[in-house]
Every structure is written in C-alpha cells, then in structure tokens.
Amino acid sequence: MTIRHHLSNELIWAYSVGELPEAFDLVIATHVSMCDECRARLESLNALGGAVLEHVELADMDEDALHRTLARTQGVGDIRGRGKDAIRADLPGTPVLPQPLRDYVGGDLAQVAWRPVGGGVRQAILPTAKGATARLLSIPAGAAVPDHGHRGTELTLVLQGAFADETDRFGPGDVEIADEDLEHSPVAEAGETCICLAATDAPLRFSSFLPRLAQPFLRI
C-alpha cells in the first residue's frame, strides 16, 4: 500500500495531546494503523509528552497508594485475549477494517449496519461523543457522493477502493483533509466499491437542492 496523503502536523499534534473530538481520534487512530510514517510522527510527538511528564512537579500520593495500586494489578499480560483481541480471534481471514474501527463496528466489514442514503451509496454512523460525527461510507464503483461543502473540517480516509475529486485521487490509506473552502464531489473509481471512514465536526452543507432535503436523513 503506497500512501500519498498523510495527516497534517496539526492533527497528529492535537491527537497526541488528546484534544480532538472522538470521531477525529477514530480517523487518526485508523490511519496510523495503516501508515507507519504517521505512526512514527505520532510516537515522536508522544515522546514530547513523555518529556513533559518527566519534568512536571511532583504531587503527593496518598499514604496507602502503593498498596491499593498493587491490589488492582493482575498477572502481566493476563488481560490479553479479552475485549478487542477476542473480536480479532473470532474473525476468519485478513480483516478489511483496521483494529480501532473494528472496535466501533463490533466486527469487520460484514458486521457493518449499513443504511442506504440514495444513489447506491450506503452509510453507517458510528457511536462517538458529541462534537463531531464519524461514519462509514460505501460508494459503488463509478458512483458519486453529492456535491458538498463543509462548515468545519472533514477528514475522509479510504479503507478500500479509491475515489477522486477536484483536488486529487485518494487510494487505500490516503486521508483527505477538507476545510470550509472546499466544495467537492468525490467519485468512486471503477472496479471496486469504495469504503471510506469520514469524520465531520459540523453538518455538511450540500450544494444542490435535493440532497439538502436528504441531509436530515443522512445525519452528516
């Protein structure tokens, strides 16, 4: 997989300090799962957090803190095989969705609860905290997502297939960062259904009349 479109420094930084809405965190965690270059960038910014922790002044722990902490411990590695790892073990073959997304879907692509939104396009809203919305999109090969602009930032990460819009082509692992100024109409490439993860921090505003009516149902 050759990734050409990476995360911006600002996004990785905001993820490292922990100040992004959950929906954006999900896009970043998923992209980093697919992209070792951005993983290295993220981990180097985490190192800055480590240095900050090392320099912080000390707070007094309660007298029995160590004792109570030890009471919370299990055998090292005992927590393996629970939770998210259990989901991985249940899946046959190589999953299409990276681990962080599988945690939200509760499985791989086959487990996604798709809803049709017109033109053969399907979507699934993922449960995240308020402030931004995350959704999976399935766009049939050759089909278009209606023209839309954004009131805030939209991140779109390609998981399978590819799409192209006025700015460029985006293939697996690529992330498009669209701000308010971009009015675009992404079209899925011929060949394979395009699966994307998209996060928006404000509802999309569609350019043409009909999709605007559809927007409340789209919830995007």
């Binding site: 922990g18 809405p21 965690a29 980093v32 993983r39 985490n46 480590g50 922790l53 939200y104 905290a129």
Partner: peptide
C-alpha cells in the same frame, strides 16, 4: 515516561472528558 504518558493521557480523556479514546492497532 513516554509510554506512561500515553496511558495517563488516555485515562484523562476517559475519566475527565468522558470520551472513548481510539488507539492505533
């Protein structure tokens, strides 16, 4: 220190901001 920072940061997001923290694979 870096590793412990990431655990502490995620705990903060979870406990103070009441938000799940998706982490990379």
């Amino acid at each position: 220190a870096t590793w412990i920072f990431t655990i502490a940061r995620n705990r903060r997001i979870d406990a103070i901001r009441k938000q799940r923290r998706p982490e990379p694979e």
